[in-house]
């Protein structure tokens, strides 16, 4: 199972205080909340469910290029928000 503490290894190098992870996860959650719905959807499908871009495009009935642009925008936003935290 994934837990918040384990996120230490995802955000930075080993030894980083787990509290940073909790803050980061909260920031990511907030960032996801703030995204337009169309970006949240593609984020959920690709990053949450591991669908390929093509699969996500079929699920959402949009071109694959649209999936990629929405996804890139969403993830840039997440990075900006978590970096600013």
């Amino acid at each position: 199972m994934e837990d918040v503490e384990a996120q230490t290894h995802l955000i930075g190098d080993s030894g980083e205080d787990p509290i940073i992870s909790k803050i980061a996860l909260a920031e990511v959650q907030r960032a996801i909340d703030s995204l337009p719905q169309e970006q949240r959807e593609v984020l959920a499908l690709v990053c949450g469910e591991d669908l390929t871009y093509r699969e996500a495009a079929e699920v959402l009935n949009v071109p694959i290029g649209t999936v990629m642009s929405r996804l890139a925008r969403a993830r840039r936003r997440l990075v900006e928000m978590t970096a600013a935290a």
């Binding site: 918040v4 995802l10 980061a24 990511v28 996801i32 984020l43 990053c47 949450g48 997440l78």
Partner: peptide
């Protein structure tokens, strides 16, 4: 961003 998003979900 992918890892973090996955963790949120």
């Amino acid at each position: 961003s992918r890892r973090l998003t996955r963790s949120v979900f």
